[in-house]
Every structure is written in C-alpha cells, then in structure tokens.
Amino acid sequence: MLQVSVYRFNPESDAAPQMQEYQVETGGKDLMVLDVLEMIKAEHDASVTYRRSCREGVCGSDGLNINGKNGLACITPLSDAVKKNKLVIRPLPGLPVVRDLVVDMSLFYAQYEKIEPYLQNNSPAPAIERLQTPEDRAKLDGLYECILCACCSTSCPSFWWNPDRFVGPAGLLQAYRFLADSRDQATDERLAKLDDPFSVFRCHGIQNCVNVCPKGLNPTRAIGHIRTMLLNRAA
C-alpha cells in the first residue's frame, strides 16, 4: 500500500489547509502520479480536486509539487517520485490556492500576456507563407515547446517575491521565443518594455526552472540571451 499525503483546502468549509492521508493499492505497478490521484478520486474521495486534461504531458494542466519537486503528475512515474513508500502531493508553491491542488494562475498568465506573446510584423503579408531558413527556424527549438504549466515560475524564488513585477522564467522564455524569431520586427519595442530592474534582472540564475521543466527546456539560458540583448542595446 502506497502512503499518499494530499494537500486539502476547501475555502467554503476549511479555516486552514491540512494534509490528508490515503492508502492506495497500486498493485506494484509503476503508475504515474496522476493515476494515483485518479484512483483516490474514484475510490476514496470524490471531493479531491486537481486539474488534468491530456494525461500525456503536453497540455500543462497538472503541474504539482510532488515530493517537494514541481512536475507534471501525468508523466511523473512513482519510481521517480516516491521515497520510502511515501508520496506527498501539494499545489504549485507561490500562487494562491483556489481549492486543494488547484492554484489561481492569474498572475502567471498576466506575466505571459505582458510580454505580448504573438508575432509582430507590420510588413504586408505575402500571398504565401513568410520564408524562414531551417537555421532561423532552429533558433525557436527549445522555446516554442513551452506548455505554460507554471512548474518553472512557481519554483523560482524571484517569482515568489515579485510575481507582479518579475516576468518569471515561463514568460521570459516566451519573450525570447519572439525575440529569436526571424519573422518578428518588434525587437526594439520588446526590449524596451523589458528594460527595468525587475522584469528580467530579478533572475539570479538559481536555475530551479531548468531543474523542474517537464519539457526539458532551459529558461535560464533564454534569460541570459535577453540580458545580453538588453546590455548590447544600452551600450
């Protein structure tokens, strides 16, 4: 029997959050953490609340804090997470809890929207696609794959301290995705909007973001590129 400890909080009935214990029969199978949550909801307690959708690590719904590390429940196998037969599941840290494992992601999304996450190109569009060399397209690899799960930003101490002013690793990864796109013409405007002490420069290179990203992306490196662009711009 796997010992599972789940963070519970219902704003309607609970004055404070608490951890609730469940014994789950996994049949010795190396299930994913999401499978365990589904079993708890189906067989133990229908009120346990979490988000989930694709169950294959591409939609970004089920970012959770699993035995102390942020990750996606659907692609985290028990063999990676469980220590001493114990699984502790908490919501992503640093964001307000709506209920149980569901956090309010408004601040996270607001930072994403702040970097104007869309291609900006005011020249008249050709009758076919805009051409881009495979080399220029390759510059977007490692950037466009972000699934907005918030595992990175909610593992970042700088984001915990300044979630309203520091864009955070997820937002900055996307900022660089557009700065790096040969089709985008708003480089100057984008950099001008990031050029303050908080938006980018609150990153202290702790690299928690790199450590937790379930897609293997490297926000710290992208932030480094933005810093260089900002410094070159000032020079």
Partner: peptide, 20 residues
C-alpha cells in the same frame, strides 16, 4: 487558412527553400 496561421507566427518546420 494555412498561410494565415503562418503569418500569425505558427512555427512550422521548414524546407531548405524556407517554405513550410
């Protein structure tokens, strides 16, 4: 409809000629 998506920024893979 595809060209519109590309103009919106969809990061299609590319051929040597730079096309989709």
């Amino acid at each position: 409809a595809i060209f519109e998506l590309e103009h919106m920024g969809l990061p299609f893979s590319r051929t040597e000629e730079g096309r989709i």
